[in-house]
Amino acid sequence: MYQGIIVAGFGGQGVISMGIMLAYAGMVDNKHVTFFPAYGAEMRGGTANCSVIVSTDEVDSPVVGQPDSLLVMNEPSFAKFEPTIRPGGRLFINTSLVSSKSKRKDIQVIDVPANKVAEEIGTLKIANMVMAGALIKHTGAIARDAIIKSLGIVYSRAKPEMLKMNETAIKRGGEF
């Protein structure tokens, strides 16, 4: 199993935070992982993205050129990354904010109204975890228990009720 993942969206949508969470959870799940944030000029324009690799074998190149899974949190990220998805790969769209539709026939599209679901649970801040829930459900790259176990470690300063909401978000994301 090898999953090259790109997560992209606005700064503040928890894109980097989700990337670190996925990498940490992958490590807890005994996978080989790398995480690389776009830290350059592209980040300073208000958009953020990061690459995460989760693999059963050792990870050589930490660069994700053609993602197996792309998580798109906002409209500009769709235009930038949708064409790069590897044929046979998956596109997870936050349909609460992205209205573009993919015309590609060689990928699987998973619509996730992440903002809407997050607000139903109680806070917009966990839209990223709704997306993460959908990702792990469809790819099976990381066991859900490993992510839930990692929440309290990665977000060590979060209050228990916030961790609980993150957990709910991951579960709800798995319904899409």
């Binding site: 990498a23 992982v33 790398t34 995480f35 690389f36 944030p37 830290y39 930490p62 660069v63």
Partner: peptide, 10 residues
Amino acid sequence: DGLLGQMMEP
């Protein structure tokens, strides 16, 4: 380089 510096790994 920036890749090694910014990348996270176990």
